[in-house]
Amino acid sequence: MKESTLMLLQYLTGVGILILGAFHFALLSFAGGGYSNAISFASVLSVYMSFGLVFELFLVFLTFHIFNGFRKILVEIYQGALYQKTVTWLMIVAGAATFLWGTRTILIFLGVLH
């Protein structure tokens, strides 16, 4: 993929994270009735059952943005050909693993996994 396409995705996911992150922080503070109330068992369950798919989208954005950012930083550190390839593939694998692991959590909250 062209670097400019990746960076366009980096911009778009960045803006998406800004919006969904503000939503996430709002749910944990004033919209959730204060931090202590927002992290209680019952309110976490109800929030994640209703916004599960929104959080899935948040997870997709974050995974791409963070692991693409890590790749950008890591390829700037050292320039061996093998290292550059390894970094790219390592980031793809680590990103996929993080995404799947996070998706498992969301599926539990949505009641798909029992």
Binding site: F41, L45, L62, I66, G69, F70, I73, T98, W101, G102, R104, T105, I108, F109, L113, H114
Partner: peptide, 24 residues
């Protein structure tokens, strides 16, 4: 960026551990 990225990975691990509370 690096800090929040590493926190995100820790947060995914933390929430996946806490999600077991919501299993049957």
């Amino acid at each position: 960026g690096i800090g929040v990225g590493l926190y995100f990975i820790a947060h995914i691990w933390e929430t996946s551990y806490s999600a077991t509370a919501f299993l049957d």
